[in-house]
Design a protein around this nucleic acid. Sequence first.
DNA 1: TTCGGATGTGTCCATATCCAGACATGGTAA
DNA 2: TTACCATGTCTGGATATGGACACATCCGAA
Lengths: 84, 84
Amino acid sequence: MDTSEPSPTSRGSYRVYTPESLGAAIRHYRTEAGLSQTQLAEMAGLNRTYLSNLESGKETEQVRRILRVLRQLGVRITLDKADW
Amino acid sequence: MDTSEPSPTSRGSYRVYTPESLGAAIRHYRTEAGLSQTQLAEMAGLNRTYLSNLESGKETEQVRRILRVLRQLGVRITLDKADW
DNA sequence: TTCGGATGTGTCCATATCCAGACATGGTAA
DNA sequence: TTACCATGTCTGGATATGGACACATCCGAA
């Protein structure tokens, strides 16, 4: 199992390649914001169980599908904080 | 109907805010690559109908959910070509 | 120690959603 | 014109998936 942090780029942004790396990035930004899963789930109108699974990269076949499309196109996905 | 291009940034990358903008970006990169929906769907192991809907931003409640989470966290999503 | 918060994880179930297939339309080439 | 391709869109059905809820674990505070 990969317990490392999601690899940030030189400017603190995150590359997304897999559902797992997407989940890791979400978890990073959530904890950075000082929010619990319960709080963020409420803010986003989601179930906490879903958010837990999302952060773990589980049960996200849909995400995997979309990432497959983008990978085939050679498109890179980058996440970063808007207020930088 | 919106026939405009998805708004590119100064460096040719695309910001994703909604399922619609995600779909528009995918369509842009697909046509740029000279691929038909059928071709890309086969390459990615998907149904063409799904890809058509994905590019139109339809039936993507899952994407909308995840985008809600990222928006609440103030996280920005950028797509760009890896070979630039 | 106990207590509470945070998180992971399991089950059940209603429903969203993907796929297959068909059909219509618009464009283009012969 | 006909023929073909790309795309949008609809239906039906099988399945994936999210929500609700419960429970266990871990950890820090009191």
